[in-house]
C-alpha cells in the first residue's frame, strides 16, 4: 500500500470533478433542496419534520453518492483506464481508497451543507447533538460510495448501473424503519433488515433525535455502519479484476 498513489488517485478524481462544476453543484444542492422541500410540505405539522428529517439526512446523500460512484467506476472500466492502471504499479486497494477519499471529501461538504441548512434554516430540532446527525450523514454518504464501488463490478452497462440504485438501495429504504418501525416488521423481514446497513444508520439517527444520551446502543449502531463501509470497500477492491477472459 502506497499512500502517495492513493492520494494521487484521490486528487485525480477530485480534479475530474472540478472540470465538471455542474455535477459538483448537483452533488451539493440536491439533498439540501429535497430536505427543504420536505420541510415546506410538512410546515404546520409540528414534530413530523423532526421525525423524518434526521433519517433522510443520511439517506439522500447515500443515494447520490451511490449513483455517482457507480457511474464513475463503470466509466473507468469501459474507457480502459482501469485496465491501464492495473498494468501499472497501482494496487487495487489504492484505487478504491483514492475514490473513497475523493468522494468522502465531497460527502463531508454535502453532509455539512444539508445539515447546516436543516438545523439553521429548515428549523430541525433533535434531542441529542446535531454533530452526531452530521457524522451519521457523512458515514452514510461514504457507505453510498463504498457500495457503489463494490456493486458496479456487477454492472456491464450504464443502464444496469443506474438500475442498481432501485435494486439495492430502495429495499433498504423500505426496511430501515422509516415506513414501518423495524420491530413491527414480519419476522423474516425483520431478520433481513438486521443485515442491511441502512437499518443501523437510521437506528442511530433516531436515537440521537429522541434522546440526548450517548448510549452503548448508539455507539454500536455507528460502529456497525463504519464496519459496513470497511467491508464494502474491501469487496470493492476484490471485485476489480486484473485478468479477464
Amino acid at each position: 500500500m502506497s499512500r502517495r498513489r492513493a492520494l494521487a488517485t484521490a486528487a485525480r478524481v477530485a480534479r475530474q470533478l472540478r472540470h465538471d462544476p455542474r455535477t459538483v453543484a448537483l452533488l451539493l444542492l440536491v439533498p439540501s433542496v429535497l430536505l427543504g422541500l420536505l420541510a415546506w410540505i410538512l410546515r404546520g405539522r409540528p414534530g413530523v419534520f423532526d421525525h423524518f428529517a434526521p433519517s433522510l439526512l443520511g439517506i439522500f446523500p447515500l443515494i447520490v453518492m451511490f449513483l455517482v460512484t457507480s457511474v464513475a467506476t463503470l466509466r473507468e472500466r469501459t474507457s480502459g483506464t482501469l485496465e491501464r492502471l492495473l498494468t501499472m504499479p497501482l494496487a487495487k486497494v489504492e484505487f478504491v481508497l483514492g475514490y473513497a477519499l475523493a468522494f468522502g471529501t465531497s460527502a463531508v461538504a454535502q453532509g455539512a451543507l444539508v445539515s447546516g441548512l436543516s438545523f439553521g434554516v429548515y428549523g430541525l430540532h433533535v434531542a441529542g447533538s446535531a454533530w452526531l446527525i452530521v457524522l451519521v450523514a457523512v458515514l452514510n454518504a461514504l457507505l453510498g460510495t463504498a457500495l457503489g464501488l463494490s456493486l458496479s463490478a456487477l454492472a456491464t452497462t450504464e443502464f444496469q448501473a443506474v438500475q442498481f440504485m432501485p435494486a439495492f438501495i430502495f429495499p433498504q429504504i423500505l426496511l430501515c424503519g422509516i415506513v414501518v418501525s423495524r420491530d413491527q416488521l414480519p419476522t423474516f423481514l425483520h431478520w433481513l433488515s438486521d443485515v442491511l446497513p441502512m437499518s443501523y444508520a437510521v437506528d442511530a439517527t433516531t436515537r440521537v433525535a429522541t434522546s440526548a444520551a450517548i448510549t452503548t446502543a448508539l455507539i454500536l449502531d455507528i460502529a456497525v455502519v463504519v464496519g459496513f463501509v470497511a467491508v464494502a470497500l474491501v469487496i470493492g477492491a476484490t471485485t476489480l479484476r486484473r485478468r479477464t477472459p
Binding site: Q16, H19, S79, G80, T81, E83, R84
Partner: peptide, 8 residues
C-alpha cells in the same frame, strides 16, 4: 481505444 481521462 485510448485509455485516457477525457475530463482531464
Amino acid at each position: 481505444s485510448p485509455a485516457v481521462y477525457g475530463d482531464l
